Amino acid sequence: MKLDIKGKPAYAYTGGKAFDAMLPTVVFIHGAQNDHSVWGLQSRWFAHHGYGVVAVDLPGHGRSSGPALASVEEMADWLLALLDALGVRKPLLVGHSMGSLIALEAAHRAPGKVRALAMLGTTYPMKVSDALLATARDDEDTAIDMVNIWSHSSIAHKPSSPAPGFSVMGGARRLMQRMSALNPARLFYTDFSACNAYANGEAAAAAVRCPTLFIFGKKDMMTPARSTRLLTGAIAHGKVVQVDAGHSLMSEQPDAVLDALDAFALSLEEQRT
């Protein structure tokens, strides 16, 4: 689905179904150097089980025109503008890594417009080391390789990769390389800098009143469990689910992630009725 947001072309994947704003809506927000495709299984499943699905390509990523936005706050404002353009009311926001901060900030800026939050592979502060920032700025290919290795718990993944010749790590690497090819303006550095600079997470988390789900990878080296205590403490009513994966948990353990999201969404519908 193509839209015009703030005068620039934007794209959102709808899971293979025409989007219907009258359905309960799930909005998927990707992380740094990614696009909507990281939500392949989860977005399609929800679209075919009674939900409206909006899996965004953030500005400068995938099919949405750039430039990439330089702050989490700008990305949250863009997301809220996109939801307004679609007539979406009270969605479940599902964000991974950088996308989780965008979801959190959007909920803080417009609490009356958000039904619930699901934050995957999240932490706050989401600091990026000076060495990795410098590599992302000066040698994006090397930064991609570094993050791809750190984001996965193994070089071989089953059952999420049952077919011969299919590679979770290889697919993730090619996606990030494709983002670089589509937008050569130091996209990874822009994304990482936005995560590193975001300073409103504690206040935003303290203000969260809506139902919240945290999904963490037990083997996550990018946002390890010990770093998540500020968020989970600030949102004490949030439910925590752990899956046997690294930071790229949607591809390493797609079924476990889907099960957690499905159960959470179902609980929201039960509360609604």
Rank of each mutant, 00 (worst) to 15 (best):
G50W: 04
G40W: 14
K8N: 07
P125C: 02
R109F: 07
H48F: 05
K218L: 15
K8C: 13
S64K: 11
S267R: 00
P24R: 08
A136E: 07
Q253C: 08
A234T: 09
N183A: 00
E73P: 08
D20A: 05
S100H: 01
L175P: 00
D145P: 03
G121F: 09
E74L: 01
Y198M: 01
A103T: 14
G165S: 00
L23M: 11
S71Q: 08
V38C: 10
A172Q: 09
G246L: 02
E73C: 05
P254H: 00
L258K: 03
P125S: 05
T190V: 13
V53W: 05
S193M: 05
N183F: 04
S37V: 10
A206F: 02
P162G: 08
S43P: 05
A47C: 04
L82S: 14
I102N: 12
Y198G: 03
H30T: 08
M22F: 09
F19P: 02
V243R: 02
S248D: 07
G40T: 15
F166Q: 02
L182I: 00
A81M: 08
V27W: 14
P254R: 00
N200F: 06
A131S: 14
A156Q: 10
A205S: 09
S100W: 07
R174E: 13
M98C: 13
F46A: 01
M176G: 04
G238Q: 01
S65Y: 05
F188L: 12
A18T: 08
A131W: 07
R63V: 02
G95L: 07
S193I: 00
K2H: 15
I235R: 08
I155A: 15
G62A: 11
A143P: 10
L23I: 05
D244S: 10
V38M: 14
S37F: 08
K218T: 14
M179N: 10
A172T: 07
Y51P: 03
A236M: 03
S160D: 06
L79H: 02
P162A: 05
G112S: 01
A225R: 04
M221A: 09
L23C: 02
D20M: 09
V94S: 07
A194P: 10
Q253E: 02
G31C: 12
R174T: 14
P59T: 02
A10P: 02
G246Y: 04
S65I: 12
A47P: 08
G16K: 10
G52L: 07
G52I: 03
M221W: 01
A68T: 05
T123E: 11
W150V: 11
D259Q: 09
H157C: 11
A225W: 05
S71P: 01
P211H: 08
T122S: 15
T25F: 05
H36M: 13
A143V: 01
S154N: 11
R178N: 10
L93R: 03
M98R: 14
A55R: 02
E74R: 11
G62W: 11
T232E: 12
Y189L: 00
T142Y: 06
Q177D: 06
V88N: 12
L133Y: 06
S160V: 01
Q33F: 06
